[in-house]
Design a protein around this nucleic acid. Structure first.
Lengths: 230, 230
DNA sequence: TGTCTACTCCTGTATATACAAGTAGACTAA
DNA sequence: TTAGTCTACTTGTATATACAGGAGTAGACA
Protein backbone atom coordinates (compact mmCIF):
# COMPACT_ATOMS: atom_id res chain seq x y z
CA UNK A 1 0.00 0.00 0.00
CA UNK A 2 1.39 3.32 -1.11
CA UNK A 3 1.44 6.40 1.07
CA UNK A 4 -1.39 8.73 0.20
CA UNK A 5 0.83 11.70 -0.46
CA UNK A 6 2.70 9.60 -3.00
CA UNK A 7 -0.55 8.90 -4.81
CA UNK A 8 -1.13 12.62 -5.09
CA UNK A 9 2.44 13.15 -6.20
CA UNK A 10 2.00 10.57 -8.94
CA UNK A 11 -1.20 12.20 -10.02
CA UNK A 12 0.42 15.60 -10.36
CA UNK A 13 3.50 14.34 -12.21
CA UNK A 14 1.23 12.38 -14.56
CA UNK A 15 -0.80 15.46 -15.32
CA UNK A 16 2.38 17.31 -16.19
CA UNK A 17 3.98 14.55 -18.20
CA UNK A 18 0.86 14.03 -20.23
CA UNK A 19 0.83 17.72 -20.97
CA UNK A 20 -2.54 18.26 -19.33
CA UNK A 21 -0.91 20.83 -17.08
CA UNK A 22 1.59 22.93 -18.99
CA UNK A 23 4.56 24.95 -17.77
CA UNK A 24 3.54 28.05 -15.79
CA UNK A 25 -0.01 26.78 -15.53
CA UNK A 26 -1.76 26.94 -12.19
CA UNK A 27 -2.60 23.59 -10.66
CA UNK A 28 -5.22 22.67 -8.08
CA UNK A 29 -4.92 24.46 -4.76
CA UNK A 30 -3.94 22.50 -1.69
CA UNK A 31 -7.53 22.47 -0.51
CA UNK A 32 -8.85 21.27 -3.86
CA UNK A 33 -6.33 18.45 -3.94
CA UNK A 34 -7.22 17.56 -0.37
CA UNK A 35 -10.91 17.29 -1.22
CA UNK A 36 -10.26 15.45 -4.49
CA UNK A 37 -8.22 12.76 -2.75
CA UNK A 38 -10.10 12.84 0.56
CA UNK A 39 -7.04 13.69 2.61
CA UNK A 40 -6.20 16.56 4.88
CA UNK A 41 -4.69 19.71 3.48
CA UNK A 42 -1.38 18.88 5.16
CA UNK A 43 -1.11 15.63 3.27
CA UNK A 44 -1.82 17.27 -0.06
CA UNK A 45 0.68 19.92 0.89
CA UNK A 46 3.31 17.30 1.55
CA UNK A 47 2.98 16.00 -2.00
CA UNK A 48 3.37 19.52 -3.33
CA UNK A 49 6.29 20.21 -0.97
CA UNK A 50 8.06 17.24 -2.44
CA UNK A 51 7.55 18.31 -6.01
CA UNK A 52 8.63 21.85 -5.20
CA UNK A 53 11.91 20.73 -3.76
CA UNK A 54 12.40 18.62 -6.87
CA UNK A 55 11.86 21.70 -8.98
CA UNK A 56 8.74 20.36 -10.67
CA UNK A 57 6.40 22.91 -9.14
CA UNK A 58 6.75 26.42 -7.81
CA UNK A 59 4.54 27.99 -5.20
CA UNK A 60 3.61 31.56 -4.60
CA UNK A 61 1.92 32.68 -1.44
CA UNK A 62 -1.42 34.24 -2.21
CA UNK A 63 -1.41 33.08 -5.81
CA UNK A 64 -1.22 29.34 -5.95
CA UNK A 65 0.96 26.52 -7.18
CA UNK A 66 2.28 26.39 -10.70
CA UNK A 67 4.06 23.98 -12.98
CA UNK A 68 7.69 25.01 -13.08
CA UNK A 69 8.96 26.47 -16.29
CA UNK A 70 11.34 23.68 -17.10
CA UNK A 71 13.15 23.46 -20.28
CA UNK A 72 15.52 20.55 -20.51
CA UNK A 73 18.47 21.29 -18.36
CA UNK A 74 21.60 19.31 -17.85
CA UNK A 75 24.43 19.92 -15.51
CA UNK A 76 27.79 21.20 -16.61
CA UNK A 77 29.27 19.38 -13.69
CA UNK A 78 28.51 15.89 -14.76
CA UNK A 79 28.83 13.94 -17.95
CA UNK A 80 25.56 12.23 -18.52
CA UNK A 81 24.30 9.96 -21.15
CA UNK A 82 21.79 12.03 -23.09
CA UNK A 83 19.46 9.05 -23.46
CA UNK A 84 19.36 8.59 -19.69
CA UNK A 85 18.92 12.29 -19.17
CA UNK A 86 15.91 12.37 -21.46
CA UNK A 87 14.49 9.23 -19.90
CA UNK A 88 14.86 10.73 -16.45
CA UNK A 89 12.63 13.57 -17.56
CA UNK A 90 10.02 10.99 -18.46
CA UNK A 91 10.40 11.75 -22.16
CA UNK A 92 10.93 9.53 -25.14
CA UNK A 93 14.44 9.23 -26.49
CA UNK A 94 15.26 8.42 -30.09
CA UNK A 95 18.55 8.52 -31.90
CA UNK A 96 19.61 8.59 -35.53
CA UNK A 97 23.02 7.67 -36.87
CA UNK A 98 24.06 10.02 -39.67
CA UNK A 99 27.55 8.64 -40.19
CA UNK A 100 30.01 6.19 -38.76
CA UNK A 101 33.40 5.81 -40.39
CA UNK A 102 37.16 6.18 -40.23
CA UNK A 103 38.59 9.56 -41.12
CA UNK A 104 41.92 11.31 -41.26
CA UNK A 105 41.95 14.06 -38.67
CA UNK A 106 42.88 17.60 -39.56
CA UNK A 107 45.68 19.21 -37.62
CA UNK A 108 43.50 20.75 -34.95
CA UNK A 109 41.69 17.51 -34.27
CA UNK A 110 44.90 15.51 -34.26
CA UNK A 111 46.28 17.84 -31.64
CA UNK A 112 43.13 17.66 -29.51
CA UNK A 113 43.08 13.86 -29.68
CA UNK A 114 46.83 13.64 -29.26
CA UNK A 115 47.34 11.41 -32.31
CA UNK A 116 49.52 11.68 -35.42
CA UNK A 117 47.85 13.63 -38.19
CA UNK A 118 48.41 10.78 -40.69
CA UNK A 119 46.65 8.18 -38.54
CA UNK A 120 43.04 7.16 -38.85
CA UNK A 121 40.51 8.01 -36.19
CA UNK A 122 36.93 6.84 -35.83
CA UNK A 123 34.12 9.26 -36.39
CA UNK A 124 30.45 9.06 -35.54
CA UNK A 125 27.72 11.56 -36.15
CA UNK A 126 24.32 11.27 -34.49
CA UNK A 127 21.21 13.26 -33.81
CA UNK A 128 19.46 12.77 -30.47
CA UNK A 129 15.79 13.51 -30.14
CA UNK A 130 13.53 14.10 -27.17
CA UNK A 131 9.89 13.37 -27.98
CA UNK A 132 10.93 13.55 -31.65
CA UNK A 133 12.43 17.00 -31.29
CA UNK A 134 16.14 17.20 -32.04
CA UNK A 135 18.02 18.39 -28.97
CA UNK A 136 21.59 17.38 -29.75
CA UNK A 137 23.79 16.99 -32.80
CA UNK A 138 26.80 14.92 -31.81
CA UNK A 139 30.00 14.88 -33.83
CA UNK A 140 32.45 12.58 -32.13
CA UNK A 141 36.00 11.52 -32.89
CA UNK A 142 37.64 8.56 -31.20
CA UNK A 143 41.18 7.42 -30.70
CA UNK A 144 40.97 3.81 -32.05
CA UNK A 145 43.57 2.68 -29.55
CA UNK A 146 41.06 2.88 -26.71
CA UNK A 147 37.95 1.58 -28.47
CA UNK A 148 38.97 -0.65 -31.39
CA UNK A 149 35.45 -2.01 -31.92
CA UNK A 150 33.82 1.40 -32.04
CA UNK A 151 32.72 1.17 -35.67
CA UNK A 152 30.95 -2.14 -35.08
CA UNK A 153 28.63 -0.74 -32.44
CA UNK A 154 24.95 -0.21 -32.93
CA UNK A 155 24.43 3.25 -31.51
CA UNK A 156 20.68 3.00 -31.59
CA UNK A 157 20.79 0.59 -28.66
CA UNK A 158 23.56 2.31 -26.77
CA UNK A 159 24.83 5.85 -27.20
CA UNK A 160 28.53 6.40 -27.96
CA UNK A 161 28.86 7.92 -24.53
CA UNK A 162 27.47 4.82 -22.85
CA UNK A 163 29.66 2.49 -24.92
CA UNK A 164 32.80 4.45 -24.25
CA UNK A 165 32.23 4.61 -20.53
CA UNK A 166 32.19 0.81 -20.59
CA UNK A 167 35.28 0.14 -22.65
CA UNK A 168 37.31 3.11 -21.44
CA UNK A 169 36.00 4.44 -18.13
CA UNK A 170 36.52 8.13 -18.01
CA UNK A 171 38.84 9.66 -15.53
CA UNK A 172 38.95 13.23 -16.68
CA UNK A 173 37.20 15.64 -19.00
CA UNK A 174 37.39 19.18 -20.17
CA UNK A 175 34.99 21.23 -22.15
CA UNK A 176 34.43 24.56 -23.76
CA UNK A 177 31.00 26.10 -24.11
CA UNK A 178 30.25 28.64 -26.83
CA UNK A 179 27.28 30.12 -28.61
CA UNK A 180 27.33 29.63 -32.37
CA UNK A 181 25.08 29.75 -35.39
CA UNK A 182 24.59 26.22 -36.73
CA UNK A 183 26.02 25.72 -40.20
CA UNK A 184 23.88 24.27 -43.01
CA UNK A 185 24.44 20.60 -42.25
CA UNK A 186 23.78 21.00 -38.56
CA UNK A 187 20.82 23.31 -38.99
CA UNK A 188 19.29 20.72 -41.30
CA UNK A 189 19.83 17.87 -38.85
CA UNK A 190 18.48 19.89 -35.93
CA UNK A 191 15.76 21.40 -38.08
CA UNK A 192 16.52 24.78 -36.58
CA UNK A 193 18.60 27.82 -37.37
CA UNK A 194 18.40 29.17 -33.84
CA UNK A 195 21.74 29.79 -32.11
CA UNK A 196 23.25 26.69 -30.58
CA UNK A 197 25.19 25.92 -27.47
CA UNK A 198 28.30 24.26 -28.78
CA UNK A 199 30.09 22.11 -26.25
CA UNK A 200 33.49 20.80 -27.16
CA UNK A 201 34.31 18.03 -24.77
CA UNK A 202 37.38 15.89 -24.48
CA UNK A 203 37.34 12.81 -22.32
CA UNK A 204 40.24 10.90 -20.85
CA UNK A 205 40.54 7.36 -19.68
CA UNK A 206 43.42 6.19 -17.56
CA UNK A 207 45.83 5.90 -20.46
CA UNK A 208 45.01 8.92 -22.57
CA UNK A 209 42.51 10.96 -24.53
CA UNK A 210 39.64 8.81 -25.68
CA UNK A 211 37.41 11.14 -27.59
CA UNK A 212 36.67 14.63 -28.74
CA UNK A 213 33.00 15.44 -29.11
CA UNK A 214 31.33 18.47 -30.59
CA UNK A 215 27.84 18.71 -29.18
CA UNK A 216 25.35 21.19 -30.60
CA UNK A 217 22.19 22.00 -28.65
CA UNK A 218 19.53 24.33 -30.06
CA UNK A 219 19.43 27.26 -27.65
CA UNK A 220 15.67 27.46 -27.65
CA UNK A 221 15.23 23.85 -26.62
CA UNK A 222 18.09 23.09 -24.33
CA UNK A 223 19.82 24.67 -21.40
CA UNK A 224 22.68 23.89 -19.11
CA UNK A 225 22.34 24.49 -15.43
CA UNK A 226 24.12 24.04 -12.19
CA UNK A 227 24.10 24.82 -8.57
CA UNK A 228 27.10 25.62 -6.44
CA UNK A 229 27.61 26.01 -2.73
CA UNK A 230 30.62 27.66 -1.20
CA UNK B 1 11.15 37.43 12.87
CA UNK B 2 12.41 34.24 11.39
CA UNK B 3 10.35 31.09 11.14
CA UNK B 4 11.23 28.68 13.91
CA UNK B 5 12.05 25.81 11.63
CA UNK B 6 14.59 28.06 9.93
CA UNK B 7 16.27 28.70 13.27
CA UNK B 8 16.65 24.97 13.71
CA UNK B 9 17.88 24.62 10.16
CA UNK B 10 20.52 27.27 10.79
CA UNK B 11 21.56 25.54 13.98
CA UNK B 12 22.04 22.23 12.21
CA UNK B 13 23.95 23.69 9.26
CA UNK B 14 26.14 25.63 11.68
CA UNK B 15 26.97 22.48 13.61
CA UNK B 16 27.96 20.82 10.37
CA UNK B 17 29.90 23.75 8.98
CA UNK B 18 31.85 24.15 12.19
CA UNK B 19 32.72 20.48 12.05
CA UNK B 20 31.00 19.72 15.35
CA UNK B 21 28.90 17.18 13.49
CA UNK B 22 30.95 15.27 10.96
CA UNK B 23 29.85 13.36 7.87
CA UNK B 24 27.97 10.13 8.71
CA UNK B 25 27.58 11.23 12.32
CA UNK B 26 24.21 10.89 13.98
CA UNK B 27 22.56 14.13 14.92
CA UNK B 28 19.87 14.87 17.50
CA UNK B 29 16.62 13.00 17.06
CA UNK B 30 13.52 14.90 16.05
CA UNK B 31 12.23 14.77 19.59
CA UNK B 32 15.49 16.02 21.06
CA UNK B 33 15.55 18.93 18.64
CA UNK B 34 11.93 19.67 19.46
CA UNK B 35 12.67 19.83 23.19
CA UNK B 36 15.88 21.78 22.71
CA UNK B 37 14.12 24.48 20.70
CA UNK B 38 10.75 24.24 22.47
CA UNK B 39 8.84 23.44 19.31
CA UNK B 40 6.67 20.54 18.30
CA UNK B 41 8.23 17.50 16.76
CA UNK B 42 6.62 18.38 13.40
CA UNK B 43 8.41 21.70 13.30
CA UNK B 44 11.78 20.15 14.08
CA UNK B 45 10.98 17.56 11.46
CA UNK B 46 10.32 20.24 8.89
CA UNK B 47 13.80 21.67 9.36
CA UNK B 48 15.26 18.21 8.88
CA UNK B 49 13.01 17.56 5.89
CA UNK B 50 14.41 20.64 4.25
CA UNK B 51 18.01 19.68 4.83
CA UNK B 52 17.34 16.16 3.59
CA UNK B 53 15.95 17.38 0.31
CA UNK B 54 18.99 19.61 0.00
CA UNK B 55 21.18 16.59 0.48
CA UNK B 56 22.72 17.83 3.71
CA UNK B 57 21.24 15.14 5.90
CA UNK B 58 20.03 11.60 5.36
CA UNK B 59 17.42 9.84 7.46
CA UNK B 60 16.89 6.22 8.24
CA UNK B 61 13.74 4.97 9.85
CA UNK B 62 14.44 3.35 13.17
CA UNK B 63 18.03 4.54 13.23
CA UNK B 64 18.06 8.29 13.18
CA UNK B 65 19.26 11.23 11.15
CA UNK B 66 22.82 11.55 9.92
CA UNK B 67 25.06 14.12 8.30
CA UNK B 68 25.27 13.28 4.61
CA UNK B 69 28.52 12.08 3.19
CA UNK B 70 29.16 15.06 0.96
CA UNK B 71 31.59 14.81 -1.85
CA UNK B 72 33.10 18.13 -2.84
CA UNK B 73 31.81 19.32 -6.18
CA UNK B 74 34.35 20.58 -8.64
CA UNK B 75 33.70 24.22 -9.20
CA UNK B 76 33.42 24.40 -12.91
CA UNK B 77 31.74 27.73 -13.06
CA UNK B 78 33.51 29.69 -10.45
CA UNK B 79 32.11 33.11 -9.94
CA UNK B 80 34.83 35.44 -11.02
CA UNK B 81 35.00 39.13 -11.30
CA UNK B 82 35.18 39.85 -14.99
CA UNK B 83 37.60 42.72 -14.46
CA UNK B 84 40.02 40.40 -12.67
CA UNK B 85 39.54 37.76 -15.30
CA UNK B 86 40.43 40.19 -18.07
CA UNK B 87 43.35 41.55 -16.10
CA UNK B 88 44.63 38.01 -15.53
CA UNK B 89 44.82 37.63 -19.29
CA UNK B 90 47.02 40.70 -19.37
CA UNK B 91 44.37 42.68 -21.19
CA UNK B 92 42.91 46.07 -20.52
CA UNK B 93 39.55 46.19 -18.78
CA UNK B 94 37.05 49.00 -19.18
CA UNK B 95 33.46 49.28 -18.05
CA UNK B 96 30.54 51.45 -18.98
CA UNK B 97 27.45 52.04 -16.89
CA UNK B 98 24.34 52.15 -19.07
CA UNK B 99 21.80 52.44 -16.27
CA UNK B 100 21.50 52.34 -12.53
CA UNK B 101 18.11 52.76 -10.94
CA UNK B 102 15.26 51.36 -8.91
CA UNK B 103 12.68 49.36 -10.78
CA UNK B 104 9.54 47.37 -10.06
CA UNK B 105 10.22 43.75 -10.90
CA UNK B 106 7.92 41.79 -13.15
CA UNK B 107 6.50 38.58 -11.75
CA UNK B 108 9.21 36.31 -13.03
CA UNK B 109 11.94 38.48 -11.60
CA UNK B 110 10.12 38.89 -8.28
CA UNK B 111 9.91 35.15 -8.01
CA UNK B 112 13.57 34.68 -8.89
CA UNK B 113 14.65 37.29 -6.36
CA UNK B 114 12.12 36.11 -3.82
CA UNK B 115 10.67 39.58 -3.23
CA UNK B 116 7.17 40.99 -3.40
CA UNK B 117 6.13 42.09 -6.85
CA UNK B 118 5.19 45.58 -5.63
CA UNK B 119 8.52 46.23 -3.98
CA UNK B 120 11.38 48.12 -5.57
CA UNK B 121 14.57 46.39 -6.54
CA UNK B 122 17.82 47.89 -7.70
CA UNK B 123 18.89 47.49 -11.27
CA UNK B 124 22.21 48.08 -12.94
CA UNK B 125 23.19 47.62 -16.52
CA UNK B 126 26.80 47.62 -17.63
CA UNK B 127 28.97 46.73 -20.56
CA UNK B 128 32.38 45.22 -19.89
CA UNK B 129 35.13 45.55 -22.45
CA UNK B 130 38.39 43.76 -23.00
CA UNK B 131 40.86 45.86 -24.97
CA UNK B 132 37.86 48.02 -25.94
CA UNK B 133 35.94 45.08 -27.34
CA UNK B 134 32.64 44.40 -25.58
CA UNK B 135 32.70 40.94 -24.06
CA UNK B 136 29.83 41.10 -21.56
CA UNK B 137 26.51 42.85 -21.24
CA UNK B 138 25.41 42.68 -17.61
CA UNK B 139 21.83 43.19 -16.52
CA UNK B 140 21.66 42.83 -12.78
CA UNK B 141 18.84 43.05 -10.26
CA UNK B 142 19.45 43.34 -6.54
CA UNK B 143 17.39 42.74 -3.44
CA UNK B 144 17.84 46.11 -1.64
CA UNK B 145 17.67 44.39 1.72
CA UNK B 146 21.13 42.97 1.25
CA UNK B 147 22.83 45.92 -0.41
CA UNK B 148 21.02 49.14 0.54
CA UNK B 149 23.79 51.38 -0.82
CA UNK B 150 23.95 49.69 -4.18
CA UNK B 151 22.76 52.69 -6.18
CA UNK B 152 25.43 54.94 -4.66
CA UNK B 153 28.31 52.85 -5.91
CA UNK B 154 30.64 53.86 -8.66
CA UNK B 155 30.83 50.78 -10.78
CA UNK B 156 33.69 52.06 -12.84
CA UNK B 157 36.03 51.56 -9.89
CA UNK B 158 34.53 48.34 -8.67
CA UNK B 159 32.28 45.94 -10.56
CA UNK B 160 28.88 45.08 -9.10
CA UNK B 161 30.14 41.58 -8.53
CA UNK B 162 33.09 42.82 -6.49
CA UNK B 163 30.92 45.18 -4.44
CA UNK B 164 28.34 42.53 -3.66
CA UNK B 165 30.89 40.00 -2.56
CA UNK B 166 31.99 42.55 0.03
CA UNK B 167 28.63 43.55 1.47
CA UNK B 168 26.93 40.17 1.14
CA UNK B 169 29.46 37.37 0.82
CA UNK B 170 28.08 34.69 -1.40
CA UNK B 171 27.30 31.28 -0.06
CA UNK B 172 25.50 29.74 -2.97
CA UNK B 173 24.78 30.28 -6.64
CA UNK B 174 22.93 28.70 -9.47
CA UNK B 175 23.08 29.38 -13.14
CA UNK B 176 21.53 28.51 -16.43
CA UNK B 177 23.45 28.74 -19.68
CA UNK B 178 21.68 29.18 -22.99
CA UNK B 179 22.43 30.29 -26.50
CA UNK B 180 20.33 33.24 -27.68
CA UNK B 181 20.23 35.91 -30.33
CA UNK B 182 20.88 39.30 -28.74
CA UNK B 183 17.94 41.67 -29.00
CA UNK B 184 18.37 45.16 -30.40
CA UNK B 185 19.48 46.91 -27.21
CA UNK B 186 22.00 44.24 -26.35
CA UNK B 187 23.28 43.89 -29.90
CA UNK B 188 23.86 47.63 -29.95
CA UNK B 189 25.73 47.64 -26.66
CA UNK B 190 27.84 44.67 -27.64
CA UNK B 191 28.19 45.96 -31.19
CA UNK B 192 27.49 42.47 -32.46
CA UNK B 193 24.54 40.46 -33.67
CA UNK B 194 26.36 37.16 -33.27
CA UNK B 195 24.66 34.58 -31.01
CA UNK B 196 25.34 35.09 -27.32
CA UNK B 197 25.91 32.86 -24.38
CA UNK B 198 23.29 33.99 -21.91
CA UNK B 199 24.06 33.13 -18.33
CA UNK B 200 21.31 33.64 -15.78
CA UNK B 201 22.92 33.56 -12.40
CA UNK B 202 21.37 33.88 -8.97
CA UNK B 203 23.57 34.40 -5.97
CA UNK B 204 22.77 33.81 -2.33
CA UNK B 205 24.28 35.22 0.82
CA UNK B 206 23.57 33.59 4.16
CA UNK B 207 20.20 35.26 4.58
CA UNK B 208 18.70 35.02 1.12
CA UNK B 209 18.89 35.71 -2.59
CA UNK B 210 21.07 38.74 -3.24
CA UNK B 211 20.97 39.19 -6.96
CA UNK B 212 19.81 37.90 -10.30
CA UNK B 213 22.15 38.67 -13.17
CA UNK B 214 21.65 38.19 -16.86
CA UNK B 215 25.04 38.04 -18.52
CA UNK B 216 25.36 38.11 -22.30
CA UNK B 217 28.66 37.13 -23.91
CA UNK B 218 29.12 37.36 -27.67
CA UNK B 219 29.71 33.80 -28.80
CA UNK B 220 32.50 34.74 -31.15
CA UNK B 221 34.53 36.52 -28.46
CA UNK B 222 33.90 34.61 -25.29
CA UNK B 223 33.81 31.02 -24.18
CA UNK B 224 33.28 29.13 -20.98
CA UNK B 225 35.57 26.32 -20.09
CA UNK B 226 36.16 23.82 -17.40
CA UNK B 227 38.03 20.75 -16.41
CA UNK B 228 36.80 17.86 -14.36
CA UNK B 229 38.50 14.90 -12.79
CA UNK B 230 36.68 11.83 -11.58
C1' DT C 1 -12.39 58.90 -11.84
C1' DG C 2 -9.45 57.36 -8.70
C1' DT C 3 -8.35 55.52 -4.08
C1' DC C 4 -8.85 53.06 -0.09
C1' DT C 5 -11.01 49.14 2.42
C1' DA C 6 -12.80 44.81 3.20
C1' DC C 7 -13.23 40.29 1.75
C1' DT C 8 -11.84 35.96 -0.24
C1' DC C 9 -8.64 32.64 -1.68
C1' DC C 10 -4.30 31.00 -1.47
C1' DT C 11 0.13 29.43 0.60
C1' DG C 12 3.20 29.55 5.05
C1' DT C 13 3.95 28.24 9.74
C1' DA C 14 2.99 25.85 14.01
C1' DT C 15 0.91 22.56 17.28
C1' DA C 16 -0.97 18.36 19.47
C1' DT C 17 -2.05 13.94 18.58
C1' DA C 18 -2.25 9.23 16.81
C1' DC C 19 -0.66 5.22 14.91
C1' DA C 20 2.59 2.62 11.60
C1' DA C 21 6.90 0.63 10.97
C1' DG C 22 12.07 -0.12 11.15
C1' DT C 23 16.11 -1.01 14.41
C1' DA C 24 18.65 -2.44 18.23
C1' DG C 25 19.27 -4.19 22.51
C1' DA C 26 17.66 -6.48 26.55
C1' DC C 27 15.28 -10.05 28.34
C1' DT C 28 13.11 -14.69 28.43
C1' DA C 29 12.22 -19.42 27.64
C1' DA C 30 13.57 -23.71 25.34
C1' DT D 1 23.80 -21.26 24.49
C1' DT D 2 20.44 -19.88 21.38
C1' DA D 3 16.28 -18.54 19.38
C1' DG D 4 12.56 -15.85 19.87
C1' DT D 5 10.02 -11.99 22.03
C1' DC D 6 9.37 -7.71 24.16
C1' DT D 7 10.35 -3.00 24.63
C1' DA D 8 12.23 1.53 23.90
C1' DC D 9 13.48 4.71 20.57
C1' DT D 10 13.53 6.30 16.07
C1' DT D 11 11.57 8.01 11.70
C1' DG D 12 7.19 7.87 8.55
C1' DT D 13 2.46 9.05 7.68
C1' DA D 14 -1.88 11.31 8.57
C1' DT D 15 -5.30 14.47 10.63
C1' DA D 16 -7.67 18.52 12.60
C1' DT D 17 -6.94 22.94 13.82
C1' DA D 18 -5.34 27.68 14.16
C1' DC D 19 -3.56 31.83 12.74
C1' DA D 20 -0.27 34.69 9.77
C1' DG D 21 0.52 36.87 5.53
C1' DG D 22 0.56 37.68 0.34
C1' DA D 23 -2.39 38.71 -3.86
C1' DG D 24 -6.30 39.96 -6.28
C1' DT D 25 -10.93 41.83 -6.62
C1' DA D 26 -15.25 43.98 -5.75
C1' DG D 27 -17.40 47.62 -3.68
C1' DA D 28 -17.66 51.87 -0.86
C1' DC D 29 -16.36 56.35 -0.77
C1' DA D 30 -14.41 60.84 -1.77
Amino acid sequence: MQARYLTIKDFVTDQIEQGIWEPSEKIYSENELAVKFSVSRMTARKAIDNLCSEGVLVRSQGLGTFVADLRPMSSLLEIRNIADEIASRGHQYSGQVLAIQSVIPDKTLARLLDVRSDSLVYHSCLVHRENDIAVQYEDRFINPKFAPDYLQQNFLDQTPNAYLSKVAPLTEADHVVEAVLPDGKIALALNSTYPCLKITRRTWCKSGIVSVAYLYHPGDKYRLGGHLTF
